[in-house]
Design a protein around this nucleic acid. Structure first.
Lengths: 328, 328
DNA sequence: AAATTTCTGTCAAACGATTGACATATTTCA
DNA sequence: TGAAATATGTCAATCGTTTGACAGAAATTT
């Protein structure tokens, strides 16, 4: 059985109350007793039972993370950063993999509630707004509108695509395609398509949208991309994520298209991983670490002061164009 | 405040005991009462407090996962698979990112203990054996020897490298380098180097080891790889992971070496991600999903029957050679 | 020496749920 | 009709920890 308060008390030769007082630094305590208790705790390798503590109203120091997947390098890096920052602050994370599955996401929300998490960072894309509203828990969201009183953090999606389009135009492209999700759902990522359409108008080129859903299989995406390249002959493609952009590069290679001479591709996300292992890809880089820092900061703020009005609903962080060395 | 048992009882017009009995299906219960209670639970969106339950000796249904990083696609896919399987069985995971940091790993172990996890799946590489021994918790390990009574799951590391070496020889290579970690620490992955050395002897070629640590930075790895390619002119390289193998491909390209004509490279891991986005890479594929299934199965066995003797200490799963289309 | 401050202990209630003991009511079926 | 089975309720203890009330003891100040 695990070591408990009474064991420590016995070992230190004091009462349980005293041990509890030492741990919580509560009331008068002599250095001698404190020392006795601390050494006893160390010797027994005592860990206070978080569960029992939290029943007393103490914080669990537990945060739920809900993301659609972790194998996507963007989410992996974001999650890793969030985890590191939270660890520094004494929080642990329960990782939830919503997998584009509404039911799973719903089940996860219940579970997080049952486990008394202190708050949730939500980045999944499935559920309607309602379920999040009635949780009564501090929540912050990434790139997703959940409810009026859930702050959103996202990168400057609009500026990102604008940068991408301008870069392609400046590189001499004339037939620029937008490759990504076409559906608008009121989320910040909608700005990507909007930016493309606006810039098409501003810069006077005809918009071409090739629709692939984030959730489409690689196979399906490849077919769509293949058709686009073969039938429509774009000379520039703006993609809404790096992985899809790489598929475009691969299909282009198969078709014997020369990159960047015949075709220029720009991705979106700019993870360290893609930049390291696919440095041939130009991309719009999201400030992943800053996003992580801000998400955590906002969440901890809301945890410590849940009723405070939001000073801001939507935090938009700047993006950066990273040009590939081969395209330069 | 969160809904609790008393609220449900009040709503359903029964006693708390009855509600608890309904939830735990304990004793005699009429369908009518069950129904009343269930509807009350739904209407109030009641979630039993896991913490309070676990104080009663109930399982938390929580598993701690300790891995060195999650941005590596291999770990990302393994973690994702483990998570999915555990979710199906009603378990959640606390994700711990040990980050090659001994202190962080130690802190995590304490934290998992304090949070009353039911068991741990360990894949990190930092700590000495001692700390894991005295946890008094069901543990299973991936690719790592932790203690006599912690079962290990790994792929057939030996066979993997053997397959790789044979393939290179059959493809006509004469100067085959081993690129990976040189230190032997008594872990299953040591078999990779061992297999290489053995096969060098069996197949009569001189072994060349180029040492890069798993934890080296990409920059450092690149320098080492660059020097190896430029100074030693290998015609085949066996890598102990796919990411390093890709670095070799990239450096080779920079040096103007033709792959596979001048140089053949084989990686190790075979993640879906690398296979999708670097299909030019031959690799030894680990059966990630099977590893996940087995890890979970063994852990749950140990949780349900902690004192049962292990029938086996080390489970070795078969690997598969995946040849790239370009090399074929 | 008396008053005050500091320290430690005992005791008990609370957190939310579980569960056994026990009582009582209702139903079932010999 | 009466015994047995079924159904529900009351009450209290328990899990490990926190915390307030209260009581003394020891140390410090006046």
């Amino acid at each position: 059985m695990a070591v408990k308060l009474t064991d420590v008390a016995q070992k230190a030769g004091v009462s349980v109350t005293t041990v509890s007082r030492v741990i919580n630094n509560h009331g008068y305590l002599s250095d001698k007793t404190k020392h006795k208790v601390f050494t006893a705790m160390k010797e027994l390798n005592y860990q206070p039972n978080s569960l029992a503590r939290s029943l007393q109203g103490k914080k669990m120091k537990l945060i739920g993370l809900i993301f659609p997947e972790i194998t996507n390098p963007f989410f992996a890096e974001l999650i890793q950063d969030i985890e590191s920052i939270l660890f520094e602050k004494g929080y642990k994370i329960i990782l939830c993999n919503a997998q584009r599955d509404k039911e799973k996401e719903r089940a996860y929300l219940k579970m997080l509630l049952a486990n008394q998490v202190d708050g949730i960072i939500a980045g999944a894309h499935n559920l309607g707004i309602e379920e999040y509203q009635e949780l009564g828990l501090p929540i912050v969201s990434f790139d997703r509108k959940l409810s009026e009183n859930v702050p959103i953090v996202s990168c400057d999606n609009y500026q990102g695509i604008k940068l991408a389009v301008h870069d392609l135009i400046q590189s001499g492209c004339h037939k620029i395609f937008f490759l990504g999700n076409k559906q608008l759902k009121g989320n910040p990522t909608d700005q990507r398509l909007k930016a493309y359409l606006n810039e098409a108008e501003n810069l006077n080129f005809t918009p071409h949208i090739c629709s692939v859903a984030f959730s489409d299989s690689t196979l399906l995406k490849n077919i769509t991309i293949h058709e686009m390249l073969q039938n429509d002959h774009p000379d520039g493609v703006v993609c809404t994520d790096d992985l899809t952009a790489i598929l475009v590069l691969q299909e282009a290679r198969k078709l014997g298209l020369k990159v960047p001479e015949d075709l220029k591709v720009i991705g979106f996300d700019g993870t360290k991983q893609i930049q390291t292992y696919h440095s041939e890809l130009s991309t719009i880089a999201q400030p992943i670490n800053d996003i992580a820092i801000l998400l955590v900061k906002l969440l901890l703020q809301r945890i410590s002061d849940p009723n405070k009005e939001l000073n801001k609903k939507h935090y938009i962080l700047p993006v950066k164009l990273i040009k590939s060395l081969t395209t330069a």
